[in-house]
């Protein structure tokens, strides 16, 4: 402290930078100022020698011999507290433990599989939605046709008795009715297939099917 209080400001500045000077971390202009001051100042030269001695000693610090008991005792502890071997633990270890290259590859593979499964699920769901939409449109169209047929059958049936139609016309009408019945059966069958495809057998469809007996029963 006494030594410092007697120092000139240039000496203080120089001594503050001696450590940086010793390890060569000063810019060239500051370094040249330090060098020129050191040439003329004995006190700073002494401090420089101390800084150099410290630098030498620090770069050559003795390395004590590590006791062999450390490894022995740590190994004994590890063996008496072994890692858990459960499948769940091993599975979780893939995500949480050591960065072994194998584990990293496994992690990436699992991540890729997971992403693949999610994308495939999204794709399937999208397909299902489209199929359901098509099914609903189809059901709507069928119900419309059914309604039209029923309406026509009822109209004909009502006015049939009063009409005087010859035998040929009656047969023609009956064959048209048969054809209609065949179309209705075909539509039912295709609806069944569609249901199987989408895996979504809608109750409404079934109820519609049960009502969709397109055969104009009232026609004799």
């Amino acid at each position: 402290m006494n030594r410092k209080s007697k120092l000139h400001k240039t000496c203080l500045d120089c001594q503050n930078l001696l450590e940086e000077y010793v390890v060569g971390e000063l810019d060239s202009s500051t370094e040249s100022k330090i060098v020129s001051h050191l040439k003329t100042c004995d006190i700073c030269q002494h401090e420089l020698r101390l800084a150099q001695a410290i630098n030498t000693e620090l770069s050559d610090l003795p390395k004590p011999q590590t006791p062999s008991e450390i490894l022995t005792e740590v190994t004994a502890y590890v063996q008496s507290h072994p890692a858990k071997r459960g499948w769940l633990h091993r599975f979780l270890n893939i995500f949480t433990s050591w960065d072994h290259p194998r584990t990293v590859i496994l992690r990436f593979s699992m991540l890729a599989c997971l992403v693949g499964i999610i994308l495939f699920g999204v794709h399937l769901n999208h397909q299902k939605v489209i199929a359901e939409q098509a099914m609903n449109d189809f059901n709507y169209a069928v119900s419309k046709i059914q309604y039209a047929f029923n309406k026509t059958g009822m109209g004909v049936n009502d006015s049939f008795a009063s009409l005087k139609i010859d035998e040929a016309s009656r047969r023609a009408f009956q064959s048209t009715t048969m054809a209609t019945s065949n179309v209705a059966t075909a539509i039912d069958r295709s609806l069944g297939i569609l249901d199987k495809l989408t895996g979504n057998v809608s109750n409404s469809h079934n109820s519609q099917n049960s009502d969709s007996n397109l055969q104009p029963t009232s026609i004799q």
Partner: peptide, 17 residues
């Protein structure tokens, strides 16, 4: 356990110093 013992071997000097 084996991996850990290797780790101890590798770093024990530095930790001890």
């Amino acid at each position: 356990e084996d991996e850990f013992v290797l780790l101890v071997r590798k770093h024990q000097d530095q930790v001890y110093w």
